[in-house]
Each structure stands twice: as structure tokens, then as C-alpha cells.
């Protein structure tokens, strides 16, 4: 069961829709327009995941929200921000200045809500569009280095596929970047591919 480029295109569209919904929610919550950029989707291996972070991001002081799911698909999703992006996000929501913002547990708690909004939109849209019902864990908020974040979560195992999308948006000239990672258990992969195929076959998006 292979993931083809057509599948990737579909996943990309779904993530676009998820990002659009997240932006809309963030807009209505902060009262500010959210400028979006096209997220680029890749399918990678666990080793490549670590390499990606080593090459593209700050390695320590990351904030992450994790949502694990089970059902027709089992796996886990993560949204990872650098502390800088995290504090910019919180700034956009709480009207605090850079000086006042001391990133600690209080702000972290705020970020867990905002990060959750974004993550839910992404995962929710995928589940909705593929018309599958998932069972979710309570969202887990973690800070630390990329190693700590990835290893604290046992669901990111070695056998499965990893979908990586970098979302980039800006709120009032504050550039915010977050990495969205979706891990699908190897056992679930055939079902995942099947639902993608079904989706393509039926010409696209189901109306709900």
C-alpha cells in the first residue's frame, strides 16, 4: 500500500482546509486578520523527522501540543512551536508587550489553548473530510527540546508513516511558524490509503 503523489495532493488540500479553519478561529478570537501561507506536506521516516528539526528549527525551548487518536485510524498529531513563535501567538491574543511576556507556565497554559485550536482544526478537518470517527486523548502540552518532545510521547513509534507540514502564518506582522506532524500507525496505513482513494474516487470532498 503506497502513498502516491495524488494522495499527497489530497492530504495537502485537507491540511489547507484545516489551516483555513484554524485561521478563522484565531481571527475571531484575536480580532486580527491572519495571513496564511501554503503549507508544504512531506511524507518522511522517523530518522528524517529528527533531521528536519535539526536543520530547520531551533532545537531547544520548543512548545508542543499533542493529540493522540484511535479508531479507524490510530496515531498521533503534534503541533510544535519555537518559544519565540509561541510567545508571539500569546502576544497576539492577550495584548501583552514583549517585555511583559515572560514565558512561563501561565503563558504556557494559554498557549495550550491556542495550540489546541490550531491542532484541532487540522486533525478535525482531516477526520471530517475522510468521514471517519476518531477517539481522542486529552491534549498534552509539553515544552523542552525536540528530543524530549518526541520521546515523551510513546505514540511516535518507529513503524508507521510520518506526515510533516510546516504551517506559516502571520498575525499583524508577527510571523508565527509551527510544525504540524501527523503520525499514522503502520497498522492503520492501509485504511488511511483506502479512505484517501475513496475520497479521490468520489471526486473530492464530501458535503456534511
Amino acid at each position: 500500500m503506497e502513498i502516491t503523489s495524488e494522495h499527497i495532493d489530497v492530504i495537502q488540500e485537507m491540511i489547507n482546509i484545516g489551516v483555513g479553519q484554524a485561521a478563522n478561529l484565531l481571527n475571531s478570537l484575536s480580532g486580527k486578520h491572519v495571513k496564511l501561507s501554503v503549507p508544504i506536506v512531506q511524507i518522511i521516516t522517523p530518522e528524517q523527522l529528527l533531521d528536519f528539526f535539526k536543520n530547520h528549527s531551533v532545537l531547544d525551548n520548543l512548545s508542543s501540543v499533542t493529540l493522540t487518536f484511535s479508531g479507524p485510524l490510530s496515531g498521533s498529531s503534534k503541533l510544535i512551536f519555537s518559544t519565540e513563535s509561541a510567545s508571539k501567538l500569546v502576544m497576539a491574543f492577550t495584548d501583552q508587550t514583549q517585555d511583559e511576556l515572560d514565558f512561563d507556565e501561565i503563558q504556557a497554559e494559554t498557549l495550550s489553548e491556542i495550540g489546541n485550536i490550531v491542532l484541532n482544526s487540522l486533525v478535525g478537518s482531516l477526520a471530517n473530510l475522510l468521514n471517519i470517527n476518531l477517539n481522542y486523548s486529552i491534549p498534552l502540552y509539553l515544552t523542552g527540546t525536540i528530543d524530549q518532545i518526541l520521546s515523551a510521547d510513546l505514540s511516535f513509534k518507529d513503524d508507521g508513516i510520518i506526515l510533516l507540514a510546516r504551517t506559516h502564518f502571520s498575525i499583524e506582522s508577527l510571523a508565527i511558524e509551527g510544525d504540524f506532524i501527523l503520525f499514522i500507525d503502520l497498522k492503520s496505513v492501509p485504511d488511511f490509503v483506502k479512505s484517501l482513494d475513496k475520497f479521490i474516487q468520489e471526486g473530492g470532498f464530501f458535503t456534511k
Binding site: A23, N24, L36
Partner: peptide, 9 residues
């Protein structure tokens, strides 16, 4: 036809 559904957009 867009995924960006913000009122501002």
C-alpha cells in the same frame, strides 16, 4: 473558492 474562510479575507 478558498480554504481561507476569514471574514477579513
Amino acid at each position: 473558492i478558498s480554504a481561507d474562510i476569514q471574514e477579513t479575507t
